[in-house]
Write a protein that binds this DNA or RNA. Structure first.
Lengths: 138, 138
DNA sequence: TCCGGTATTGACAATCATTATCAATAAGCA
DNA sequence: TGCTTATTGATAATGATTGTCAATACCGGA
């Protein structure tokens, strides 16, 4: 039942490809702008739909930025989490077996079923640290 | 510099009190409705401002629900995380020392400074499990 | 290759939470 | 009691996301 009635369009390919090119996480609006700047005539609603599809299929990760915007990123493969620079958006994938099992244990212990979790770490990457210090001295 | 020019108003007290009464996490809109239903004439914008203040002071926790809404909860004291029922909003506070240290380690290992993290677990609490099964049989 | 049913698109309107605006109000101090 | 100004609240503005719906184009079958 993965794709009983799914059709392939150049729009979906464009979104998939643009997402692959992007570095770090990008929002739907932003991705739409990029596509338009490259000459595409794709519609904004279509970008939203394509991204939601990719996330549902498992070909994209999604998370919300700290101001509430939904961000996407091409997904490598298995379940993992992210370490994100709050200045430049640099993203590092992190394995979290220890935390996966911890989350499931905690949920089960409290009688919760079908647990899902949101685990993301934000920080300032080394490059941005230097940049910020330079700015403070100005 | 905590409150050099801060003034105390009944509005702020009302929000603080209403937040204390609420069970689990509540949104600003929701809290505003509750206050109005209790006869208060408080404005919506004021509720937003008061909640943002409480969170900044450290008297309230905040997190975003899975559909992007900002939710608040009266804060007990120290740093902790939450296990939240996605149906009824029941919230359980969880200690997470293991995860705290893990998050800091991971960030440091990648050269990230001032790490903060978002860790929340969503699930279906035992009460709602029963309720959902009953509904499916209908 | 052509055709027809229908999934998909895209321009636009509609939502919804949140923030900005700004005149009117009231907290707190001399 | 006055004065200064932080705060309020009605409302408009913003911005991301979703709904609408006629037009389009994918794809399996003839």
């Amino acid at each position: 039942m993965t794709d009983s009635k799914r059709r392939n369009t150049w729009q979906k390919d464009a979104v998939r490809h643009a997402l692959g090119e992007a570095v770090g996480f990008v929002g739907a609006q932003q991705l739409h702008q990029v596509l338009r700047n490259h000459g595409s005539t794709i519609g904004l609603a279509t970008v939203y739909r394509a991204l939601a599809d990719l996330a549902a299929i498992g070909d994209a990760d999604s998370l919300q930025s700290q101001d509430g915007e939904l961000l996407y990123r091409a997904c490598t493969n298995s379940h993992h989490h992210h370490l994100i620079c709050r200045d430049c958006g640099l993203t590092v994938e992190i394995e979290a077996e220890r935390v996966e099992s911890w989350a499931d244990e905690v949920a089960k212990a409290a009688g919760f079923e079908n647990p899902t979790h949101t685990i993301d770490i934000f920080g300032t990457c080394s490059a941005c640290q230097g940049r910020n210090i330079a700015r403070e001295l100005a």
